[in-house]
């Protein structure tokens, strides 16, 4: 028996996917996700998905940038090769601010971008959801709701029927890769 990844249904508006998400989670489904052409406001609440904790990662990266910059400038200009230029001390904090700021921003941005892709497990070029016959419209004008087969309430027939009853079109059972 082929393993199933889940069931996917198509909806045709932001309002339809929002109400479908509310009804599916109200029925006790937990491994539900929506796929939309743009972030739909409030859909995370309807799907009962928690907020992103990416900010903590970015703060750590930013702090690393600050420490790294300070250590680098202090060690290079005051310890390894003390350099006196125009009577200024080898290490003087005011002149270190610009570089410290820039490295803080740089490492934070790396954290935000690569952290976001990492948490989202991207790049991933093959995903079972791409086998849905209508899924190419997810980046255009259609909204999809997917229920994972690992959901405790998942049942091939009943779940498909439920998705159809709440207005889902092209309800398809997708196979695991």
């Amino acid at each position: 028996m082929a393993n199933h990844w889940g069931i996917v249904a198509e909806f045709d508006s932001a309002s339809a996917i929002y109400h479908a998400a509310e009804r599916v989670t109200a029925q006790g489904y937990t491994k539900v996700d929506a796929h939309t052409p743009f972030p739909v406001h409030g859909l995370d609440k309807a799907l009962r998905q928690g907020p992103s904790h990416l900010g903590w990662l970015v703060i750590c990266c930013g702090a690393t940038g600050i420490c790294l910059a300070q250590l680098m400038m202090w060690w290079m200009n005051a310890v390894d090769y003390p350099m006196w230029v125009s009577g200024k001390q080898p290490y003087a904090w005011p002149s270190t601010i610009p570089v410290t700021f820039e490295l803080m921003v740089l490492l934070s941005a790396f954290g935000a971008v690569f952290g976001m892709f990492g948490i989202n497990k991207l790049p991933r070029f093959h995903h079972p959801i791409f086998t849905h016959t209508q899924f190419h419209r997810v980046t255009d004008d259609r909204f999809f709701l997917s229920i994972d087969s690992t959901d405790p309430k998942f049942d091939r027939a009943a779940t498909a029927k439920m998705l159809e009853s709440i207005g889902g079109k092209h309800v398809e059972l997708l196979e695991e890769e």
């Binding site: 996700d33 929506a34 796929h35 939309t36 052409p37 972030p39 739909v40 859909l43 995370d44 799907l47 998905q49 907020p51 992103s52 892709f117 989202n120 991207l122 790049p123 991933r124 070029f125 093959h126 995903h127 959801i129 791409f130 899924f135 997810v138 980046t139 999809f144």
Partner: peptide, 11 residues
């Protein structure tokens, strides 16, 4: 990068 508009991804 295999973007598929998942709401978890959008968050």
């Amino acid at each position: 990068l295999g973007w598929h508009g998942s709401n978890r991804h959008w968050i």
